[in-house]
Amino acid sequence: MRELVILSGKGGTGKTSITAAFASLAQNMVLCDADVDAADLHLILKPDFKKTIEFKGGHEAVINKELCTQCGRCIEVCRFGAVKDSFEIDPIDCEGCGVCVDLCPEKAIDFPETICGQWYISNTRFGPMVHARLGIAQENSGKLVALIRGEAKKLAIKNNLDLILTDGPPGIGCPVIASIGQATAILIVSEPTVSGIHDMERVGQLSKHFNIPAMVCINKYDLNPKQTEKIMAIAQKASMPVVGRISFDQTFTEAMIQAQTIFEYNHQSQASMEVRQIWDNILSLPSFNAPVNPILKHL
């Protein structure tokens, strides 16, 4: 089984539109939307939300006013400044470490499990999909990403599917690291802008840090040919193959408004032809075809 994770560092370079386009092309595949913070893939793929499961990701401290003697021990031990002078805990500042719970001499702090979000198993017109919704202002996005990737893998094994397409989150932090562990390869969607390049380099460094092969595609490459050349040079220097370039094409937005992939909307558009080429290039890339330890298939 292989898993391709689509990342970019910078947001808005076209990760989700390109993932959806790949979904149109790929066979025997499970989709996984690992951008649990601001998931968008479902807007194109229209999943049926066959199964909804609550995500319990942590705990939250709550002071029981009846037992509290206002001794101030919790204020003293909380490193996150979450206990207010009124002996209430600010749920936004609370990290859920439970230190106040364990150290309260009156045992006056409850520690209920919090529901941090939901995750879903769905069917789409392209195949099964695992996706999630992290609750607003919740923590533990990395845990939720790890969880849904694990579920996507289980689903793939159960249905005998040999590819997982994962739409990753922006950035290089907790949820991104959670989205790449044990992946076969990463596709970095870059764009020829100063920020697109800067952020691609950071994701490239991350992939190297975790030893996962990365490749690059350049979206909107004709926006700034000079910067496009710069991306090619940087990618080459970092041994990241450039698998293709996509023109600045409004087809992506038009298709998105119709809740379609670019192939469904117009399979002959410039972007469609370029994405098809990229997909073929990825499938024939050695790093994407390296033999997998057969026992790992069961994990």
Partner: peptide, 11 residues
């Protein structure tokens, strides 16, 4: 006996 982990770190 194993000389190291046989699986990547988990997240």
């Amino acid at each position: 006996y194993a000389e190291g982990a046989n699986k990547d770190g988990h997240w």
